[in-house]
Nucleic acid binder design. Sequence first.
DNA 1: ATAGGGTTAG
Length: 574
Amino acid sequence: MAYAEKLLTKCNSLPHIKQLQAHLITTGLFKSYFSRSKLLDFCATSSAGSLSYATFIFNHIPHPATNDWNAIIRGLAQSRQPLDAVTCYVSMRRARCTPDALTCSFTLKACARALARIEALQFHGEIVKFGVGADVLLQTTLLDAYAKCGDLNCASVMFEEMTSRDIASWNAMIAGMAQGNRPNEALEFFKRMRENGLSPNEVTVLGALSACSQLGAFKEGEKIYDYIRDQKLDDNVNVCNAVIDMFGKCGFVNKAFEVFSGMKCRKTLITWNTMVMAYAMHGDGVKALELFKLLERDGLGPDSVSYLAALCACNHAGLVDEGLKLFESMEESGVDKNVKHYGSVVDLLGRAGRLEQAYKIIASMPTYPDVVLWQTLLGACKTYGNVEMAEKASRKLVEMGSRSCGDFVLLSNLYASHGRWNDVGRVREAMKNRAVKKIPGFSYTEVGGVIYKFINGDQSHPNWRDIYQKLDEIRFRISECGYVPETNNVLHDIGHEDKENVLGYHSEKLAVAFALISTSAEVPISVNKNLRICGDCHTAIKLISKIYKREIIVRDRTRFHKFKNGSCTCRDYW
DNA sequence: ATAGGGTTAG
């Protein structure tokens, strides 16, 4: 019997599969569940097979068994329309066929891929109903499905209720937290796992490193890297890629490059892209472009992510013509442009004041431009005081139902700077009517191996009075050097003095003040912000770096700012 | 009746 199975692994095209199918039918083996569902499964999931042909065979089976259904559901779960697997499951139940643990496993995978939280929840019920709830593998699949669908609370409950957990369960929890923007908790689970006597494997460290990257947690990241080398996990490309990314995002491009050039395993395109992006984030456009050119020599062609990283590098280094050339060369390289490439080039042109050209590029897009594109153009209009173009962009934003505070602020500021007070009032009215939402800004900083989080105007830190006192001192000292708060970054119906206060307690300022009072003078201060740094904080921190003789590194949403002796590596271009 | 399923970087 086993020979049919062996033949199956030798099939590498649909005609082969059909031949084997014919053979099974003529010898009567097709009636045996085993050979038949093996064939179905192979046909539905391997690259040699075809899902539609598998479905065709399946439809001719008079009374499909659980295994036959499983093969089709598995194939559908891996297809472009994963939710078809759920539909198939419904048919299976209607045909009164009983699901087993594998049926549930495949359908849950489908839910996770489709981000279908409600369906995942319903399958949780099915799992209990069919008595397979005690299966550890299935529990992990379920936990992972909840996490991928964004329901991290359900995922945690699942995890805590598990009576036995193996390394994959921990890995799913750590990766889930890291990917769900809860990096602190990811690291907590990582710590707990080790306290429970388990040794992290290559999958574990990927999740933990990703959490460190998000937090800019350099010390923790370096400890994990030591462990990786100790356990020889660095013969895995994915692990190397994650280490490079971690060092890059923690502000140590040189360390990232050391790892990149010292890799013992073969680099993939992702490795190259990660390194190009790291240079881009640090504003080192020349090195980024050098690497971008070298990547082709490694036998790899740049893909859309490579181009995005290179464009980003041009943006952060102010290389306008290089960027434009790169953008135009995409077509002949056969790499499709997506909305992010357009965004990058519009940003590039917008900063250089080439607003008409930027507008033309948006207009030439084959797909609809998104909100971010118009916001980028609007921002450039503000910088160059172009009211007509700003109105065009804002009109588009309003049409698209924008609710972002920044759009309204920009337009309002532009009107204000031209003394068009009626229009300012109109924009404010529109803001009220639309319940504009504002993403809260927060910053992280690490002191003594502990990561502290600050929210704008935060008073939750035990030493908040000391921090605010330090900020008062800072404000006094930088004012002596000519600092004037840039209150036009704030749009509220409040007095001038209050505006200064809102700005004065931005999360990045709180983090810097806290670091100043709690670290020694030799260590550079490192701060990590979720949004882009505001112009006022940028000016203030430049002065702080000079007066307090401290190097301050701020990573914002898009890049690194290294402040030293009164200037920043972004050269005020970001 | 036999086996198969979970965690993975830009």
